[in-house]
Amino acid sequence: MSLQAGVKAPDFTLPDQAGNPVRLGDYVGRKVVVLYFYPKDNTSGCTAEACSFRDSYESFTDAGAEVIGVSSDSVESHEKFAGRHDLPFVLLSDRDRAVRKQYGASTLGVIPGRITFVIDKDGTIRHTFSSMTNIGGHIDEALKIVKELAADDH
């Protein structure tokens, strides 16, 4: 069962595609975070999802949000994936799937799921969207919530 809206997002630190540690807690108080878990680099659905986030990235950043992708692929795999598709956002390597487990981002408890969490500036999960097949829904739903949060900020 994935974490639901209203729950504090568990903090974690994972390496990005350059091998640098990224801590979720560093964004608290500064940015809304769109944290999306996906199954595997370079698969058709995951490539489509990453490219959709890439194509909407400016809309997310304009609304004060940062996009972060997470899978159990290696740092090297993420580096190649990000380079091949010109991904402007961070991809984190969760090799032992510990963060995926914390967030309950699996299907049937075992298959790596495709789940997006929108985490507000206070570190609280405001929205979750889970679908293996509705790729566009992840981007559309997340952007809608991010824009609502930005409007609330002003």
Rank of each mutant, 00 (worst) to 15 (best):
M1W: 00
S2C: 00
L3M: 04
L3I: 08
Q4T: 06
Q4L: 12
K8Q: 13
P10G: 08
P10H: 03
F12M: 03
F12S: 00
P15G: 07
P15K: 02
Q17Y: 09
A18Q: 10
A18K: 12
N20L: 08
P21V: 03
V22Q: 01
V22S: 03
V22Y: 02
R23M: 12
L24R: 09
G25A: 14
G25M: 00
G25K: 06
G25V: 05
Y27W: 12
G29Q: 14
R30G: 10
K31M: 06
V32M: 05
L35W: 07
F37H: 05
P39M: 02
N42R: 14
S44V: 13
S44P: 15
S44Q: 13
G45P: 04
C46I: 01
T47C: 12
A50M: 12
C51K: 14
F53E: 09
F53T: 03
F53D: 02
R54P: 10
S56F: 11
E58T: 14
F60P: 09
T61S: 14
D62K: 15
A63E: 11
A63C: 12
G64R: 15
V67S: 05
V70Y: 01
V70F: 05
V70A: 03
S72T: 01
E76K: 02
E76S: 06
S77D: 11
E79H: 13
K80P: 02
K80Q: 14
F81W: 10
F81K: 07
A82I: 09
A82H: 11
G83D: 10
R84E: 15
R84A: 15
H85P: 10
P88W: 11
P88V: 13
F89D: 09
F89Q: 11
V90C: 07
S93W: 01
D94K: 00
D94F: 00
R95V: 03
R97N: 06
A98R: 04
K101A: 08
Q102Y: 00
Y103K: 03
A105I: 04
G113K: 07
G113D: 04
R114D: 07
T116F: 02
T116S: 10
F117N: 10
F117E: 07
V118K: 12
I119F: 07
D120V: 09
D120P: 11
D120W: 08
D122Q: 15
D122E: 15
D122C: 08
G123H: 06
T124S: 09
I125C: 00
I125M: 00
R126L: 01
H127M: 13
H127D: 08
S131W: 06
N134R: 11
I135N: 01
G136Q: 14
G136P: 06
G136W: 04
G137P: 10
D140H: 13
D140I: 09
E141V: 12
E141T: 15
E141N: 13
L143T: 06
K144R: 15
I145P: 11
I145T: 13
K147N: 10
E148P: 03
A150W: 01
D152I: 08
D153C: 06
D153F: 10
H154A: 15
